[in-house]
Design a protein around this nucleic acid. Structure first.
Lengths: 125, 125
DNA sequence: TTGCTTAAGCTACAATTGTAAACTGCATTT
DNA sequence: AAATGCAGTTTACAATTGTAGCTTAAGCAA
């Protein structure tokens, strides 16, 4: 995923992406709207704008059936790992372990998190 | 640090913050400019705008001496841990360990990082 | 003191973002 | 066929951001 694609997903747009990522298949605007109108209180027009912008940005694909169906071009994993690396670059001088150290020292980790991490980084043998 | 303060530090502004965080004492614009003009290629006016915006946002304090001196109101640690939590909230559903798992699975960690993390999460005693 | 240099403040302006209305054309209903 | 409704497109508009010029005031040099 190139820098300027992901970097351009804005907060509002991200809500649309999340929905598309959850969906098994491509969705028509109707459905996107249905889901988001309630949760976000957005007008139909707003949602259409967001979807269109995501298409322009190349992170959502549209396929014409009866009506357009929309699906993500990038996966959620791709996006989140990109966003994470971006954070590390911008504010941790590129050092991933500094991010984690910051999480630890700012009590950003729950007991469960820590247990999982212990497991994750246990020295194998 | 309240949400709307930190959230408002933009990329360009962050460069100014980084400089102020490095400085032991408050700096006059002259010095901020000196440091950033070279590295960022910004015009003096641009730098003044950024500094002023940071002051409006309440994250930089100005004190009048001969000339205004600027210093950060929030620490780098406060900011980075805020930004990290924000990322976790926005894209990892609030689960910090998911962030770390994503780093692991996307090869975002160097050997050194991993060594440090093993150390960090080693079961003590 | 008189002008020059520069700090600080004010103004500018395009691009992006959040939010949405207006319009347009096709399909479905009556 | 005429009208209605909604998908898709275009336009809108304020706030924020990136980038910077213009103006004013004050200190320093001549």
């Amino acid at each position: 995923m190139s820098d300027n694609l992901a970097s351009k997903i804005t907060d509002s747009e991200l809500e649309v992406m999340k929905l598309l990522w959850c969906a098994k298949d491509a969705l028509p605007v109707t459905e996107i709207r249905e889901k988001l109108q309630g949760s976000k209180g957005w007008e139909p027009a707003t949602i259409k704008t967001l979807v269109s912008r995501l298409v322009s940005k190349g992170v959502v694909r549209q396929e014409k059936r009866n009506v357009y169906y929309y699906s993500p071009v990038i996966t959620e994993k791709e996006y989140s790992s990109w966003a994470t690396k971006d954070l590390i670059t911008r504010i941790y001088n590129g050092k991933a372990s500094d991010l984690i150290a910051s999480l630890v020292s700012s009590n950003g980790l729950t007991k469960d998190d820590i247990a999982e991490l212990r497991e994750m980084f246990k020295v194998e043998e």
